[in-house]
C-alpha cells in the first residue's frame, strides 16, 4: 500500500460566503467519511490563510524569520488529505472526487516517500 498527499490549492483572499461554502463543506465531510469507510483516509487538515504563515531560515546557527508564506503568488495550499491507495489510479480516483466537490480548485496528488 502506498500513501499520497492530496493538496488543495485555493486563491488567496476571503473565503466564499457561507451559503456557498456550507454545502461544499458538507459534501467534503461526506467524502472524508467515505474515505474512512474504505480504509483510505489517514489524516486531513484545513489551513489558516497564507498570511498567517512564517518562514524560517537558519543563518549561521540563528533562525531568521520572514512574515508570510514561502512561495509568492495568488494561490496557496489551503489544506490537505493524506490517503492510503493501492496505486496512482486509486489515488487519482479519490483526488478526482475531491476536485469535483471543490471545483474549480486544483488538487495536487503527490506520492509520499517512505
Amino acid at each position: 500500500m502506498r500513501q499520497y498527499l492530496l493538496s488543495i490549492y485555493q486563491p488567496d483572499g476571503p473565503p466564499p460566503p457561507p451559503e456557498v461554502l456550507e454545502p461544499i463543506m458538507t459534501e467534503l465531510g461526506k467524502l472524508n467519511e467515505e474515505m474512512k469507510a474504505a480504509g483510505a483516509w489517514v489524516f486531513a487538515v484545513g489551513l489558516h490563510p497564507p498570511a498567517s504563515a512564517t518562514v524560517i531560515r537558519d543563518r549561521d546557527g540563528e533562525p531568521t524569520l520572514t512574515d508570510g508564506p514561502f512561495t509568492e503568488g495568488k494561490e496557496h495550499m489551503g489544506g490537505f488529505t493524506v490517503i492510503n491507495a493501492e496505486d496512482l489510479d486509486a489515488a487519482l480516483d479519490w483526488g478526482s472526487r475531491m476536485a469535483k466537490v471543490l471545483a474549480p480548485l486544483a488538487i495536487e496528488v503527490r506520492p509520499i516517500q517512505w
Partner: peptide, 14 residues
C-alpha cells in the same frame, strides 16, 4: 516508479 502508475489494463469504466 515513484508515483505508482499501475501496470495493468484499466477497469471497464475507465
Amino acid at each position: 516508479r515513484d508515483a505508482g502508475i499501475p501496470y495493468r489494463v484499466p477497469r471497464d469504466a475507465d
